[in-house]
């Protein structure tokens, strides 16, 4: 079943068409890769789906419900979450508080407005400690996020994205600036998230990672999809090789 469906998505900035008639569909539980040269519209695509930009044209469906024009926080309520290409942690909050801010009560089951903002809850404590061990930050729970190393910050950002209990996570170049070992750890974490039933949308430059983890890949160039399919067929596609290496 498709969790996200994007239909003829367009985004113009003034006269520049950053995204131009993009169509794709993501199935629940899969890892979907979006790649393309610099400036091909990958980040814009994520930003539009997350509600940071309004689409100029086209529609976005999450679980069959149209979410065009939703504010970012409404998209989070619908089960979307993301990380950022340039890390955006709350530097003056501790690691633990970063996760707490993003945590969301299961409103349907137990949460009231009051408990959401003021309350203590066991499920929260449990989720946060699970996320700390998921990201290997147990010993740093009370350190300020701005004092973490680069790798730790990336791990915390991923954990924070999971804290809002999303169904679909966008990872915007999660491996940028990582060494081989760290990329391997990241890959394991991505698989663990998939095993929890979270659908993953991966935007990445590190080809090793994308080709290894993705079920399906779409390649963007100049805001248009030039190729899609499984990693192998995309790699062998002439149009893709031209986009990356020139003719």
């Amino acid at each position: 079943m498709s969790i996200l469906k994007v239909d003829n998505l367009c985004k113009n900035f003034g006269g520049v068409q950053a995204v131009n008639g993009l169509n794709f569909e993501i199935n629940e539980g899969e890892i979907f890769g979006l790649i393309g040269p610099n400036g091909s519209g990958k980040s814009t695509t994520i930003n539009v789906i997350c509600g940071l930009y309004q689409p100029s044209e086209g529609s976005i469906f999450l679980n069959g419900k149209k979410i065009n024009g939703f504010k970012p926080n409404q998209c989070v309520d619908m089960g979307i979450s993301r990380t950022f290409q340039n890390i955006r942690l709350f530097g003056d909050l501790t690691v633990w508080q970063n996760l707490w801010v993003a945590w969301k009560d299961d409103r349907k089951n137990q949460g009231s407005w009051f408990s959401n903002w003021f309350g203590k809850s066991e499920s929260r404590e449990k989720l946060i400690s699970e996320l700390l061990s998921f990201s290997g930050l147990e010993t740093r729970a009370n350190d300020l996020a701005s004092n973490l190393s680069f790798g730790e910050q990336r791990r915390l950002e991923l954990a924070r994205a999971v804290a809002s209990k999303p169904k679909l996570i966008f990872l915007d170049e999660p491996a940028a600036g990582m060494n081989k070992e760290e990329v391997k750890e990241l890959r394991d974490r991505i698989f663990r998230l998939r095993d929890l039933g979270i659908t993953i949308f991966l935007v990445e430059h590190v080809m090793d990672l994308v080709m290894n983890v993705s079920n399906r890949i779409t390649v963007l160039n100049f805001g248009k999809a030039i190729s899609e399919g499984d990693p192998e067929s995309v790699q062998n596609d002439k149009a893709v090789q031209e986009a990356y290496f020139g003719q």
Binding site: L52, K71, P72, C75, V76, V101, K104, R160, A163, S164
Partner: peptide, 9 residues
Amino acid sequence: IAAQLCGIS
């Protein structure tokens, strides 16, 4: 921006 994407209005 990040705060909004943590579900905060």
